[in-house]
Write a protein that binds this DNA or RNA. Sequence first.
DNA 1: TCAACCTCTCAAGAGATGTTGAAATGATGG
DNA 2: CCATCATTTCAACATCTCTTGAGAGGTTGA
Lengths: 111, 111
Amino acid sequence: MDETQALSAFAALSQETRLQIVRLLVKAGPTGLAAGVIGEAVGASSSKASFHLSHLEQAGLISSRRESRSIIYSAAYPALAGLVGFLMRDCCQGHPEVCEPAVASLSTCNC
Amino acid sequence: MDETQALSAFAALSQETRLQIVRLLVKAGPTGLAAGVIGEAVGASSSKASFHLSHLEQAGLISSRRESRSIIYSAAYPALAGLVGFLMRDCCQGHPEVCEPAVASLSTCNC
DNA sequence: TCAACCTCTCAAGAGATGTTGAAATGATGG
DNA sequence: CCATCATTTCAACATCTCTTGAGAGGTTGA
């Protein structure tokens, strides 16, 4: 993940509806969810959902596949991991006080 | 770090000048840098630098103190750590494929 | 106190972003 | 092939964001 990709990713995640969508899709797992289901879950009209889904896909944070009538979106785990890595690698240069608490918080993570 | 803070932080980091400033200040360490020095380093006019510095401070990613004539900005390490933690804690629920590569990338980090 | 310094504030304009509803596209089952 | 379903596309509008340049606000040394 380079700086340009990180900028797009940050921009994508800086919008409430989109952040909700990403959280939803991460929870949903690799199976993903249909656009309509996502829109309903986050309280967005179809065109609104479509707009934000496109934005997220453009940023590389989610990916899509057609399945019969529906379009299924799923989280792009490598991209999310890349973003976490960017923040840690790039932002904590020589300053373990950034990385260490973050790594420590992994113990409260469901992983 | 809650969702609202994360949204502000993502918005703050989604702008090139601001991302440059954060990276610069993290490297600079707790001592920080004067507004003028920062502006010059990222090629921004005084008002432009001031605009983005305010934005970052508002988002809680940096903090300031006056020191004689200058205003010194420095990275808010706990906030950055909180953001990394948010991404990991909140986005990798039950999906180690997000966290693990990120943690692995720590080996290439200067920490 | 005054001049110089450093930074912030303000208003105006250009451009990007998000929302809405209507219409178009593509896929499916009968 | 047609009616229906799921989603995207489009244009219009409002809003937010960024940039610019001019000026104001504190702070210091002479």
